[in-house]
């Protein structure tokens, strides 16, 4: 036990002494949370609009006033002909032109359609503001996220990405570094069991990941105002399963990689990219082609992020996420088994 503790202590010192890495490790969640919470948004806002108002009716004038007053649109200019307005859009000085032509010809919207999603939303919003429909019989209720904050969607995603990064990258690099520096040889020859070496290495990173998890949850709750609707116990419990999974993955990478550079590139590009792309953190899995959906089925963060979205934001009980948690646990066990079995207690040469 004493050996174990001194191991953990030594590993913690490695982490704590590298100030810059520490700064990034804690700065990253904070900055990401702030960015996603406040800066990154797909809301329609400040759309640069050109008005062609040659034949402006009374109704039309009211529409323009409503457009100007709305936070969605910023009227940057007026043009006299539709062609001139289109030139505005084409020269990147405006995103949208609204042509109020004569009564008969109705209203024409000229939209910069480079971004199909945004183009569609601009057009829809513009139509709504212009038409100003009286409140109809439809009543819309947004479940779980009434203010439509994107942070609700992203907080679990950030957790999924950062925990994976910290655990997998840091452990793999720290093990490979011992190989490169030759200290691994001494550790292996020492009376300490190899399993203990590995576990002792993982413990500080586990603690670090838990602290980061805490930082994220606190920021989510008190800075971004994301309610932690579900049971905190299960949120932490599932996260710890995920952290262990990430640690096992890190160990696996360190078994494969010979140099620090390779371990870093493997975890940065080969591991991180699929996570960002296929886990559903940014892009919904349902919209992918079937082949990629299959591929995403083996990406662990997919299940973690899904589970966290349900547990944290929707506040459902653990019973509703049993599938995800079950898959995570199985993956963790499988990865642990593979990585421990492939861990070499002897050198290749």
């Amino acid at each position: 036990m004493k050996k174990f503790l001194s191991f953990v202590l030594k590993e913690s010192k490695h982490i704590l002494r590298d100030r810059r890495t520490m700064l990034i490790l804690f700065g990253m969640p904070v900055v990401l949370m702030l960015l996603f919470g406040f800066a990154i948004t797909t809301d329609v806002r400040n759309v640069r609009t050109v008005i062609v108002a040659d034949h402006l009716s009374a109704q039309g004038r009211q529409s323009v006033e409503r457009l100007a007053a709305s936070e969605y649109f910023t009227i940057v200019s007026t043009a006299s002909t539709p062609a001139e307005a289109e030139r505005f859009v084409r020269s990147q000085k405006a995103d949208l032109a609204i042509v109020f032509a004569s009564e008969k010809r109705g209203i024409q919207l000229v939209v910069d359609g480079a971004d199909p999603n945004m183009a569609q939303q601009w057009a829809t919003y513009a139509q709504q503001v212009i038409a100003n429909p009286p409140s109809g019989p439809v009543n819309v209720k947004m479940l779980y996220n009434p203010q439509m904050k994107s942070a609700y969607n992203f907080v679990p995603a950030i957790m999924g990405m950062l925990l994976m990064l910290v655990c997998a990258m840091m452990t793999s690099v720290s093990i490979v570094r011992e190989k490169e520096r030759g200290t691994m040889e001494v550790l292996l020859v020492s009376p300490v069991r190899p399993l203990m070496v590995v576990v002792a290495k993982a413990v500080p990173y586990l603690l670090l990941a838990v602290v980061i998890l805490g930082v994220i949850l606190l920021m989510a709750r008190f800075v971004l105002g994301v309610p932690l609707a579900g049971s905190l116990f299960w949120i932490v419990a599932v996260s710890i399963v995920y952290i262990i999974l990430a640690l096992a993955l890190g160990l696996l990478i360190s078994n494969v990689a010979q140099t620090q550079m390779m371990a870093l590139l493997l975890s940065a590009m080969v591991l991180l990219m699929p996570i960002v792309m296929l886990s559903g953190m940014l892009f919904p899995v349902e919209s992918m082609p079937v082949a990629l959906q299959w591929l995403s089925a083996i990406v662990p963060p997919r299940y973690y992020i899904e589970a966290m979205r349900k547990l944290m934001i929707m506040g459902v009980g653990i019973g509703e996420v049993l599938t995800e948690v079950g898959i995570l646990v199985l993956m963790t066990l499988a990865l642990l088994a593979v990585s421990l079995l492939t861990f070499k207690t002897r050198l290749a040469r």
Binding site: K10, K13, H14, R17, R181, G182, T183, E185, V186, V189
Partner: peptide, 14 residues
Amino acid sequence: VGYMPGRFSLYEDL
């Protein structure tokens, strides 16, 4: 056994 490999086997940040 005790073993001292040929190259430095120390933790440089300790």
